[in-house]
């Protein structure tokens, strides 16, 4: 029986050219896949915030004009080598580590890694202790410091729990790329490549096999799913 909901899901999947196909209803996420990003910072403008704005719209992050406590799932970090003067602008979001410290430290298991490598917060059992925020080397998580409104149906978020980039898990499950990737391709220079690192036929897997890529704080051994070129 196909209900209205399934129809909506199916129509969404057909509209966008999908890098991967939507998972069948009723099928769990599988460890056969490992979703990842490859970001070429040489294509990132210093002033460009297309990915950041797309994320805010997609996730319903309205903000309260309080920069110290407002949530940011992705941010542009401007880095400069003091020795050479070389500068880059790097989009930094949850790096979806294979060995995420936030998952290790979470007392209740709310901070979790899905089978396909996406790191999420199960806000149903998050108690708001913020230990994951202490543990994350990338400062990828935010704490909801006040009542939230204007939530998107696909991204529940509320006061007193921790949140962060979900790699747009709701879009991936429909066979669509994350909102930041789509927006960067449409409105900026297409610096972001999304795909399944485990699939040898995927563009991202072929590119990381062919070209030199780096990961932020690779020395920590967390094996992030987000890779960079140009830093």
């Amino acid at each position: 029986m196909i209900n209205r909901r399934h129809m909506i899901l199916a129509s969404g999947a057909m509209l966008v050219a999908a890098p991967a196909t939507a998972r069948q209803a009723g099928q769990p996420a599988s460890a056969a896949q490992r979703w990842g990003l490859l970001i070429d910072t040489s294509k990132c403008g210093v002033e460009c915030t297309v990915c950041v704005e797309a994320c805010k719209a997609e996730m319903g992050l309205s903000g309260h004009d309080r920069p110290r406590t407002d949530a940011q799932y992705v941010r542009k970090v401007n880095v400069r080598d003091p020795a050479t003067g070389a500068a880059h602008s790097v989009p930094v979001m949850c790096q979806h580590c294979a060995k995420p410290p936030c998952v290790d430290v979470c007392p209740t298991g709310a901070s979790m890694k899905r089978a396909d490598g996406i790191v999420l917060v199960d806000r149903h059992i998050c108690i708001g202790c913020r230990y994951c925020m202490m543990a994350c080397p990338y400062k990828a998580r935010s704490f909801a410091h006040e009542d939230q409104s204007g939530q998107q149906p696909h991204l529940p978020r509320g006061k007193g729990t921790v949140e962060g980039c979900t790699l747009c898990v709701h879009r991936i499950d429909e066979g669509k790329p994350p909102a930041c990737v789509e927006a960067c391709a449409a409105r900026a220079r297409g610096a972001m490549l999304f795909g399944d690192l485990n699939d040898p036929k995927s563009e991202i897997a072929q590119k990381v096999a062919r070209e030199a890529t780096t990961r932020i704080r690779a020395d920590l051994g967390l094996e992030p799913g987000v890779r960079y070129q140009g830093i």
Binding site: N3, R4, R5, H6, L9, R23, Q24, A25, G26, Q27, P28, A29, M112, R114, A115, D116, L120, D122, H124, P153, H154, V169, D173, E174
Partner: peptide
């Protein structure tokens, strides 16, 4: 729990569908 933790989509019962 099925949807968030396991990634199973399209379940019969869904809060999103209730609201819709």
């Amino acid at each position: 729990d099925d949807t968030l933790r396991l990634g199973i989509r399209g379940a019969k019962a869904s809060l999103k569908a209730c609201v819709e």
